[in-house]
Design a binder for these strands. Structure first.
Lengths: 358, 358
DNA sequence: GTTCCTATCGCAAGCGCTTGCGAAACCCCT
DNA sequence: AGGGGTTTCGCAAGCGCTTGCGATAGGAAC
């Protein structure tokens, strides 16, 4: 059973021309229903499967999309990719995967004219492509869709980061916290492994603070790479503040896990001595009882994929921007601050003046 | 800047024939070094990039491999895929991703003659393909490599599951435990989401027990799907045993996380009242202080990919089987059992007879 | 019984690249 | 100087499919 050549065999067996076979098999009009059935049956019996290489050459279409992502080993991207891939497959597209872990491969991808001929479109996940990079792709005539950042002229889906940040911090404020810190994602130099820092979350944090007429303390805003280790050391830095916070809003759950680790190691009880709210609603957040912002990651991936397929079909740039909201998931890592200053950990117990309101 | 047709343009500009261009650009012998340089320069100036569709048609080679995996959203597969993908890309192959989440798509993949024409080879990750499925692929002339199971006639890499299981349980035995349970992975019906149950781990567990001349208690072997929820409920079931274990070996870290959750919820201290050892050395295991078996997941992925590229180049089936060992990573979730029967949790405190040795 | 239209199908020209084979051209020897 | 061996390159035949256009046949309309 080898590649019994092709159309010709079917054509011969069916007693028709190759063009008829081609049309019959692709349900193209111009063929009588009767011969269509016959050809299809014969093709099936022969186990004939059209060579995509041939059809690609002839049509220029590949029925394939490229999905590019900064990392596969992180939970978030895995989720998004799974959802997006599933939608694409359902729409009849193969997915070509490009992991752009470091700047080098990233450059190679956008500069090198890799795509045309391989894929009909590109789905960009949380990479925050530069305008130049986007142009490089569109110049090649590739429809695209972007997840995780907003780009003019490109259909994209992203989460209401600012609103979400505000909501998270308001929750802490409503619990009575006044000393609230923010742990953000720092763009690691030379790689895009952690994805792109969603800067808006910081703004939401500041929004909420100023709504509450609270001071903006620079020492309460720390940034680390988007890993548990990063969260861990960020929390450690916060603990060194002259007046440590009583609550912290962390820009990703993975970092929040690190935060919890540091706190446990330091003997600081959560939520007794420190409230923590994360961002992502990571698979394991429930287990760790972490209050967090859910932004339906898989739905985002699916929507982005849908945007791309409609762009592929419409062939006219749509530029829809889909904003997905985030909702607070309250778990056990947040609670009102201790009523009195009975903090029990070591550094210094001398935070005996409250934050003065502006 | 559109697809300025192709070889012909370059050929014309360079004043040579298309065949010369083709040969020059691919470093095929039979061309003087001088004209080669010239053609290459001109091609570069023109920004010419050969159409893969054309070359695929002509050569039959796609420079693409398919990677098939049961799931993307699980940590393990993300790791493996990332490592494998990176190796493949480095070897000059594009990677086509197939997530076979449920039986339906799985069947469609193996039955449907999707691959030939799309990919030159297939990398199968932890899917435990049936012999029939494998044959379907090899029949299409596709070299393959398998990760996570051993298949006759196919190059594969897998971990020494049995040894690893034995090691894990020995560790518990050496600590003095005698009532050791096993939580295994149950193949969920209708989907392969959790990958394939590594049955050998159970055997390793039994090996160690019989080495220590300990009873084999059927009620100490429970199986659930490979998720935290699964681990969680498995542990709950164990807690209902007439004589609950003092230690448990869990076949995956994700399940172990669930186990830890259940124990915490039940107020059972780890490792005081219950020792837990997992399997995978998951990213978050360190944070949760989980003793576990490390089996260098990314290395496995990379090795499997390497096996595939060499199969692709050699074109003669190699059938190497690469066994990777697992090593114990001792953390805080294991300790000697409490000297006396001072277990403190509720169900019943009536386990006043020790396990009788055989 | 003409005429004209429509539905059905075959012809053949690509799509862009690769490669076996033959033609030049050139070099080295004797 | 002529012959044999190399090297370098062009010709042209594909690879397997798609598709515009023309051909044929069967009916409908008059």
């Amino acid at each position: 059973m080898g590649m019994t050549s092709s159309v010709d065999t079917v054509a011969e067996l069916a007693g028709v021309s190759v063009s008829t076979v081609s049309r019959a098999l692709r349900n193209v009009p111009g063929i009588s229903e009767e011969t269509r059935k016959r050809v299809q049956r014969i093709a099936r019996e022969l186990g004939y499967v059209p060579s995509i290489a041939g059809s690609r050459l002839a049509t220029g279409k590949t029925r394939t999309v490229a999905i590019v992502t900064p990392s596969l080993s992180k939970w978030f991207f895995g989720q998004v990719l799974a959802a997006a891939g599933s939608v694409m497959r359902e729409a009849g597209y193969d997915v070509l995967l490009y992991e752009l872990a470091d700047e080098a491969t990233r450059g190679r991808f956008f500069d090198g004219p890799a795509l045309p001929g391989r894929a009909d479109g590109v789905l960009i996940l949380a990479l925050q492509p530069t305008p130049a990079e986007l142009e490089a792709l569109t110049e090649q005539g590739l429809p695209l869709a972007v997840l995780g950042s907003e780009q003019p002229g490109v259909p994209c889906v992203r989460v209401e980061d600012r609103d979400a940040g505000r909501s998270a911090v308001r929750h802490l404020l409503n619990l009575g916290h006044e000393r609230i810190a923010f742990i953000g994602i720092e763009q690691a130099a030379g790689n895009t492994l952690g994805g792109v820092p969603p800067a808006q979350r910081l703004l939401g944090y500041r929004d909420a603070l100023s709504e509450a007429a609270l001071d903006h303390r620079p020492e309460y805003e720390v940034f680390e790479e988007n890993t548990t280790a990063g969260g861990s050391s960020a929390m450690a830095r916060l603990l060194c503040a002259e007046i440590p916070p009583t609550a912290v809003f962390v820009a990703s759950d993975e970092m929040a896990f690190g935060v919890l680790g540091t706190l446990r190691g330091a003997g600081i009880s959560v939520p007794g001595d420190m409230s923590v709210v994360g961002f992502d609603n990571h698979e394991l957040s429930g287990l760790l009882d972490l209050t967090t912002m859910d932004h339906s990651v898989t739905r985002q991936g699916a929507e982005a994929a849908r945007l791309l397929v409609s762009a592929l079909q419409a062939s006219e740039t749509s530029e829809t921007t889909l904003m997905v909201p985030a909702t607070l998931v309250v778990r056990g890592s947040t609670a009102p601050p201790r009523p009195l200053r009975t903090r029990t950990y070591s550094p210094t117990k001398t935070h005996n003046h409250l934050t003065e309101t502006a």
